[in-house]
Measured scan of single mutants.
Amino acid sequence: MKVIFLKDVKGKGKKGEIKNVPDGYARNFLFKKGLAIEATPANLKELE
């Protein structure tokens, strides 16, 4: 799953980066803790 990092996550990504991460990791950790959001076309446009 492609995500946009909202905060730095040690060993995974830095704020503003767009990366592919495992689906479970994104849903169960990154999204729940507010560390990242899904890289949807709308979210990507908002980032620019």
Rank of each mutant, 00 (worst) to 15 (best):
K33V: 10
K10R: 14
A36M: 00
A39F: 14
K12F: 15
L44T: 07
K33R: 14
G16E: 02
L35G: 01
A39K: 02
T40V: 05
K12L: 15
A42G: 09
N28F: 10
V3H: 00
N28A: 07
K10E: 12
L44K: 06
A39V: 07
T40Q: 04
I18F: 03
V21W: 02
G13L: 02
G16N: 07
G24R: 11
F5K: 00
N28Y: 13
L47A: 09
M1P: 03
G34K: 09
G16M: 06
E48D: 12
V9H: 06
E48Q: 13
V9F: 03
K45N: 11
I37P: 00
D23I: 15
L47I: 12
R27P: 04
N43Q: 09
K2M: 15
A36D: 00
E17K: 02
E17T: 07
P41D: 13
G11D: 07
K45L: 12
E17Y: 02
G16P: 01
F31G: 02
K14R: 14
K32H: 08
G13H: 12
L35D: 02
D8F: 07
K10S: 10
A36L: 01
I4L: 10
D8T: 12
L47F: 13
L6F: 03
F31W: 02
K10P: 15
F29E: 13
N43S: 09
M1A: 05
K32D: 09
E46P: 07
V9A: 02
P22W: 08
Y25W: 11
A39P: 03
M1Y: 06
K10L: 13
L30R: 00
P41G: 08
K15S: 08
A39Y: 14
L47E: 07
K10Y: 12
P41R: 09
F29H: 13
L44G: 04
L44A: 06
K32V: 14
L47N: 09
L47T: 08
D8I: 02
G13R: 01
G34L: 08
K14F: 12
I4N: 01
V3R: 00
F29L: 08
F29Y: 14
G16A: 03
R27K: 13
V9P: 01
D23T: 15
L6G: 01
P22Q: 09
P22A: 09
L47Y: 14
L30Q: 01
F5T: 00
K45S: 12
V3P: 00
G16I: 01
A42T: 09
G24T: 12
E48W: 09
P22R: 09
T40W: 04
V21S: 02
K15F: 06
N20Y: 15
L47S: 08
K2T: 14
A42F: 07
V3I: 08
L44Y: 05
Y25V: 06
K12I: 15
N20Q: 13
L44M: 11
N43P: 04
A26E: 08
N20H: 14
P41M: 12
G11L: 04
N43G: 08
K2E: 11
K33L: 15
Y25A: 04
I18Q: 04
I18D: 01
E17H: 04
G16S: 04
A36S: 02
E17S: 05
G24E: 14
D23Y: 15
A36N: 00
D8R: 06
K2W: 15
G13D: 02
M1S: 04
P22I: 06
V9G: 01
V21F: 09
G16D: 05
A39G: 05
G13K: 01
K45V: 10
I18V: 13
G34Y: 08
I18K: 02
K33D: 10
G24Q: 12
K15D: 03
A26L: 09
K7T: 11
D8Q: 04
K14I: 09
N43T: 09
D23V: 15
Y25L: 08
K19D: 04
K33T: 12
R27G: 03
K7N: 07
K45D: 10
K12D: 06
K33G: 08
K15R: 13
Y25F: 10
P22V: 06
D8Y: 08
N20P: 07
D23R: 13
G34R: 09
G11E: 05
F5N: 00
K2D: 12
K10H: 13
L30N: 01
M1F: 08
E38N: 03
V21Q: 04
A26D: 06
K14V: 11
K33I: 09
L47P: 06
F31R: 01
A42E: 15
A36H: 01
P41Y: 10
T40H: 07
K10I: 12
G24F: 13
E17W: 04
G34T: 02
V3G: 00
L44F: 07
K7E: 11
N20E: 15
I4K: 04
V21H: 01
K14Y: 12
G13Q: 02
K19E: 03
E46G: 12
G13I: 05
K7S: 10
K14Q: 10
L35Y: 12
K33M: 15
E46S: 14
L30G: 01
N28D: 15
F31E: 05
G13Y: 12
L44P: 04
R27M: 10
A42K: 12
F31T: 04
N43M: 09
D23E: 15
V21K: 00
F5E: 00
V3L: 03
R27V: 12
N20R: 13
K2F: 15
I4W: 03
D8V: 04
D23L: 14
R27S: 05
N28K: 11
P22N: 10
G34P: 00
V21T: 02
M1D: 02
I18E: 04
K19T: 07
K45F: 10
G24I: 13
P22Y: 08
N28W: 10
E38W: 06
M1G: 03
K10G: 08
L6D: 00
G24W: 15
L30K: 00
F29K: 07
P41A: 13
E46Y: 14
K32L: 13
F29S: 06
V3N: 00
L35M: 08
K33H: 15
D23M: 15
E17P: 00
F5V: 00
L30E: 01
L35T: 01
G24Y: 14
I37Y: 06
P22H: 09
K7P: 00
L6T: 07
F29W: 11
K33Q: 13
G34D: 05
G11I: 01
G11Y: 07
K2V: 14
N43Y: 09
E48K: 12
I4H: 02
E17G: 02
K15V: 08
A36P: 00
K32P: 15
Y25D: 05
P41K: 10
F5G: 00
M1Q: 04
K15P: 05
L6I: 13
N28L: 09
P41S: 11
D23A: 15
T40E: 05
D8S: 09
D8E: 08
L44H: 06
V3W: 01
L47G: 06
R27T: 11
K15A: 14
V9S: 02
K14E: 06
G11R: 05
I4F: 06
F5W: 02
K32E: 11
G24H: 14
A42W: 06
P41T: 11
Y25E: 06
Y25T: 04
F31M: 07
D8A: 07
G13P: 01
E48L: 15
F31S: 02
N43H: 08
E17R: 02
E48V: 12
G11P: 03
G24S: 14
N43D: 07
A39E: 02
L6S: 02
L6V: 09
N28R: 09
E38K: 10
D23N: 12
N28V: 04
K32I: 13
I37A: 07
K45T: 09
G11W: 08
L35P: 00
K15I: 09
I4E: 02
K2N: 12
E17Q: 10
Y25P: 05
T40Y: 06
A36F: 00
L30A: 01
L6A: 02
K19Y: 07
L44V: 12
G24P: 09
K10Q: 12
L30P: 02
V21R: 00
K19W: 08
N28P: 00
K14T: 09
R27E: 09
T40K: 06
I37E: 04
F31K: 03
K2A: 11
K19N: 04
K19P: 00
K14D: 06
I37Q: 07
E38R: 09
G24L: 13
E17V: 04
M1W: 05
R27L: 14
E48T: 13
N20V: 15
L47H: 11
D23P: 13
K32Y: 07
N28S: 08
M1E: 02
F31Y: 05
F29P: 03
G13W: 12
K45E: 11
F29V: 15
K12T: 14
K2L: 15
K2I: 14
I37H: 05
I4A: 03
E46N: 13
V21A: 03
E17D: 11
R27Y: 13
N43A: 13
N28I: 05
A36W: 01
K19A: 11
Y25R: 07
N28T: 07
K2Y: 14
G34H: 12
E48A: 14
E46T: 14
D8H: 07
L30D: 01
N20S: 13
K7V: 15
L6E: 01
F29D: 11
V3Q: 00
E46R: 14
K7I: 10
F5Y: 07
F31H: 02
N43F: 10
L35A: 04
G13V: 06
K19V: 14
K2P: 10
K10M: 13
P41F: 09
E38L: 10
K19Q: 07
K33E: 14
F29G: 05
I18S: 03
L35K: 03
V21E: 03
A39D: 02
G16Q: 03
I4Q: 03
